[in-house]
Design a protein around this nucleic acid. Structure first.
Lengths: 216, 216
DNA sequence: GTCAATTGTCTTGTATACAAGATCGATATT
DNA sequence: AATATCGATCTTGTATACAAGACAATTGAC
């Protein structure tokens, strides 16, 4: 629990939104939230203002806050940008790799291998996240790492859905192997290309996404 | 003036920060801001929470808000990400161009030409911004356009400084010409490459940036 | 004379009170 | 019966009050 209630509430509500406890389009009543968390309206409002600034909710004047519904097309656009940023992170990582970041990537990759072999979709979900974060960190660009982490958080629910589709888990791990190889080989441009392809949504994977979004 | 005071204040304070009226590291006193804008502390706090969420200021618990000082290295990282996003915008624009967006880019480009020929650095600054925004819009990706616009805003003061360095104005316009050509030719990959080079800071331009930041 | 501790003031964090606008329902009129 | 208008209630927006922590200054001791 963070030091001030406002920030704690922000994280709490953000998590609730990203875990789909508050559905897109749902209205967020300040009083309800306040009594639910046992605080007054003031810190709730501060948390909501922050979420509005981040773009997770929309506060329409005098009409309250609603959870933003990105919609399939916008989610696609977000993946498109994510792919680009991850590509940059990968290319920088390949060029700036050192012993520590190399070992961090290798360790996360090994954990992914275990989860993938076990066919444990939930475990792979977490290990996959750690793998990508290791690459962000290896880029040695604090700003890029922050941007990637933030966007990754917002896309978290959809990434999770994607892992459920047929064979995605094995495919994903195979792609990871190639990515690790080229990063360790120091080939920045190839790392960029592979990560862009790995993260991006192309072809029939878009309809998979739409389908899984409809049924969640 | 926006509908609610909080949002209005956010824009007001954000502008003040980005125009360097509030310097990096400066402490922002809630009461001072409240009386300056003739409101109570509540909307001021809400504005500050939003700016904290965006990353423009930092609110340390019980110790108040200070304007974040990115520092040369972080500004460089921001330009690096900006270059990547603009590259994506350019490549999408090249592929998705239609009559309306094509004309918008052409018009902005013509205004840049006039300012460049006149040697009017201030006018070129504005026209250049419009030119880049026309490309964001032509990408037809709302999310990407928002991300680009937001980052562009934060880098605004530094871009302005960059235009002051020797010959940058003429060089910039020359690069614009090439960019327009490849976008209009529909060459997405070349547009990406040229825009990345145009926006990114490489080699001696980094020391130019550091130098201009020190003397502002 | 210098360093540390304590007190006082200032600022932030949270709660509550009050005002203004929006939504929803009821009633009246066509 | 349907629609429009008026009003009541509920929610948000802003202000103010109060509490608690941080910083600074002054005083005392070594």
């Amino acid at each position: 629990m963070s030091e001030n209630v406002g920030r704690w509430l922000r994280d709490e509500i953000e998590t609730a939104i990203l875990s789909n406890e508050f559905s897109p389009g749902e209205r967020l009543d300040e009083m309800v939230l306040a009594s639910r968390f046992g605080v007054s309206r003031t810190p709730v409002r501060e948390a909501l203002m922050q979420l509005d600034a981040i773009g997770l909710i929309e506060i329409r004047p005098r009409r309250g806050a609603v959870v933003i519904d990105p919609g399939p097309h916008r989610v696609y656009e977000m993946f498109e940008v994510m792919a680009e940023l991850e590509g940059l992170a990968g290319s920088l990582a390949a060029r700036r790799l050192d012993d520590k970041t190399r070992e961090a990537i290798a360790a996360a990759h090994r954990r992914c291998e275990l989860s993938a072999e076990a066919g444990d979709s939930d475990a792979y979900y977490y290990d996959n996240e750690a793998f990508h974060k290791a690459i962000y960190a290896a880029s040695r660009s604090d700003f890029l790492e922050e941007q990637c982490t933030q966007l990754h958080r917002r896309l978290r629910p959809y990434r999770r859905l994607q892992l459920r589709v047929r064979n995605r888990l094995a495919t994903s791990f195979t792609e990871h192997c190639a990515i690790v190889d080229v990063i360790f080989a120091g080939d920045g441009e190839e790392a960029r290309r592979l990560l862009r392809a790995h993260v991006g949504i192309q072809g029939e994977r878009f309809s998979d996404l739409v389908a899984s979004m409809a049924t969640r």
